[in-house]
Every structure is written in C-alpha cells, then in structure tokens.
Computed example of a mutant assay.
Amino acid sequence: MFQNHEPRPQMSSVAALLTQKQHLLSRLEEYPGPNEREEIERLLEEVDARLNAVDRPDRL
C-alpha cells in the first residue's frame, strides 16, 4: 500500500481554508480598490495552493 509520510491536514484545517476563501471572495464582490484587490487575489492564490496541497501533498 502507498504510504504518505506527510500528515494530512485535519478536516477543521480544510474547513478553515474554505471559510477564508469564501470571506475573500465576498470581499472581492465589494469592489475593493486596486491595492486591496491585489492583496485579496494574492491571498486567494495562497488559499487555493493550500487546498490543492490537500489533494496532492507532494506539491506543497
């Protein structure tokens, strides 16, 4: 059997990332200024990378 040596995030960690993503998406809907928009998009990229790492832990 395949054994992964890296621990998988707990479900609460995934739930927290999804909650953070929803909050960031909501902030984008409020038409932020250009600087804030860039920061929100950067944070969204980080959250997405972490969520993708749950599926593929070798990518983190």
Rank of each mutant, 00 (worst) to 15 (best):
M1V: 09
M1K: 07
M1P: 07
F2A: 11
F2D: 09
Q3E: 13
Q3I: 15
N4V: 13
N4D: 12
H5F: 13
H5C: 07
E6G: 02
E6C: 08
P7G: 00
P7E: 05
P9K: 01
P9L: 02
Q10H: 07
Q10T: 06
Q10Y: 04
Q10I: 03
Q10L: 06
Q10K: 10
M11E: 14
M11S: 08
M11V: 15
S12I: 05
S13P: 00
S13A: 08
A15C: 00
A15T: 04
A15D: 06
A16L: 06
A16H: 06
L17M: 10
L17C: 02
L17E: 05
L18R: 15
L18G: 03
L18Q: 15
T19S: 11
T19F: 12
T19K: 09
Q20V: 05
K21C: 01
K21Q: 14
K21L: 11
K21F: 09
K21R: 15
L24M: 07
L24P: 02
L24T: 03
L24S: 04
L24V: 05
L24R: 04
L25E: 13
L25P: 01
L25W: 01
R27D: 07
R27V: 02
R27Q: 14
E29W: 06
E29V: 04
E29L: 10
E29C: 07
Y31H: 08
Y31C: 00
Y31P: 00
Y31W: 04
P32I: 00
G33L: 01
G33F: 01
P34M: 08
P34N: 12
P34G: 05
P34C: 03
N35M: 11
N35G: 05
E36L: 12
E36A: 12
E36D: 13
E36H: 09
R37N: 05
R37P: 00
R37Q: 14
E38M: 09
E38S: 12
E39F: 07
E39R: 13
E39W: 10
I40R: 03
I40M: 06
E41N: 13
E41Q: 14
R42A: 11
R42P: 00
R42I: 02
R42S: 13
R42V: 02
L43A: 10
L43K: 14
L44C: 03
L44Y: 09
L44R: 05
E45D: 12
E45L: 12
E45F: 13
E46A: 09
D48S: 13
A49Q: 09
L51E: 02
L51D: 06
L51P: 01
N52D: 14
N52W: 13
A53F: 02
A53N: 00
V54F: 06
D55C: 09
D55V: 07
R56E: 15
R56Y: 15
R56S: 13
P57R: 02
D58Y: 10
D58Q: 10
D58F: 11
D58K: 06
D58L: 10
R59C: 03
L60F: 13
L60M: 06
L60T: 08
L60Q: 10
